[in-house]
């Protein structure tokens, strides 16, 4: 009986060996990165990679696996960032406690928003979640007494360990990447579990899935909340890392950037999302010199990628490469 599943019977692990090896490889890389990158500029940018990976991983599960296109991840990122910032900078709470409460708040909002919008499908869902992002963006700008308005919110305290603020690039590197590696581990497990399978089934057709007794709307809400929480966690870490938040964190442009990350790496590939974040974050750094044209370039890139590689640029190239390889062999 087990001839076809020999690995399974000895080891009923949810995650395939390849993913686990890649994950351990990334852990090793993170461990030695401060020596490799030599601190300063590169390590600082790598810290942003760790932060932006969180909403990207979340969106990958929601869009790539479950097929629910959402443009609300910037809003949840901002919600996490501002809640963390306001609670710690203005209310004087311990940053860790502020971070925790911010996630609770984001979860409550996500349950409500998810419950409302996940009845919608396709374009309607995209537009409803886009509206939510716009509402949050406007609220951030208008509620100046709370959020600092267009000036942004500054003076956000850093997270600390045993009374010592985590301030050096290297310390931040280990903190941020530990969180991101943990979230990635969780997402990889989930993607290869019965839940990930159900998400992919829902993506293909929710009516047939309901006939199998699967509670489709519950699954959709769960993955939406989880995915939004990853985004808000990224936002909170961003706030305590940069010690400043501006309305750009909750902008529609940022929402599109996160989608661009997936378009680059592959919508249903968690490792593709990681590579996408890496590429886009460093690209963004270099694009600073021609900031005015960056939007145009990224917009054109998104259109081109979606036209020729609807499953994502890297994923599409890999698939094309495999086809060529098979033809050659």
């Amino acid at each position: 009986m087990c001839a076809s599943c020999s690995t399974l019977c000895t080891e009923p692990a949810p995650m395939p060996r390849r993913d686990r090896n890649l994950w351990f490889g990334l852990c090793a890389l993170v461990l030695v990165a401060p020596w490799l990158l030599g601190g300063g500029y590169f390590i600082n940018t790598s810290n942003f990679v760790a932060i932006y990976a969180l909403p990207a991983i979340g969106l990958c599960l929601l869009v790539g696996y479950c097929g629910q296109l959402s443009i609300s991840h910037a809003a949840f990122f901002a919600l996490g960032a501002y809640a963390s910032g306001i609670l710690s900078a203005r209310q004087g709470l311990n940053p860790w406690l502020a971070l925790l409460l911010a996630q609770v708040l984001a979860a409550v909002v996500a349950v409500f928003i998810g419950w409302v919008v996940l009845r919608l499908r396709g374009h309607y869902l995209a537009i409803a979640t886009l509206s939510f992002t716009i509402i949050i963006e406007v609220l951030i700008k208008e509620l100046g007494s709370l959020t600092g308005g267009l000036q942004g919110l500054s003076g956000i305290p850093r997270l600390s360990l045993g009374g010592w603020p985590i301030a050096s690039d290297t310390a931040l590197h280990y903190l941020l990447w530990t969180v991101t590696l943990g979230v990635l581990w969780f997402a990889l497990n989930l993607a290869h579990s019965r839940m990930g399978r159900a998400y992919r089934a829902i993506k293909e057709g929710d009516a047939a899935t309901a006939l199998l007794g699967v509670d489709v709307s519950r699954h959709k809400i769960e993955v939406f909340v989880l995915s939004s929480l990853f985004a808000s966690l990224g936002g909170s870490l961003y706030a305590h890392f940069v010690t400043f938040v501006s309305p750009a964190a909750g902008s529609v442009m940022f929402a599109i950037d996160i989608i661009l990350v997936l378009a680059f790496g592959g919508f249903d590939r968690l490792w593709g999302a990681m590579l996408g974040v890496l590429a886009l974050t460093y690209l963004n750094e270099y694009a600073v010199t021609f900031a005015d044209y960056k939007r145009v370039a990224f917009g054109v890139a998104l259109v081109v990628i979606m036209s020729f590689f609807p499953t994502g640029l890297l994923a599409g190239l890999v698939a094309a490469g495999q086809r060529l390889w098979r033809k050659g062999a």
Partner: peptide, 25 residues
């Protein structure tokens, strides 16, 4: 997917890769 509705392990158990989620799978 036919087995899915009878499954007990939830999102958190699956994400953490807990033993009972694996045993159920």
């Amino acid at each position: 997917l036919g087995c899915h509705a009878a499954g007990r392990s939830g999102l958190v158990a699956c994400g953490l890769g807990l033993g009972r989620a694996r045993a159920e799978e």
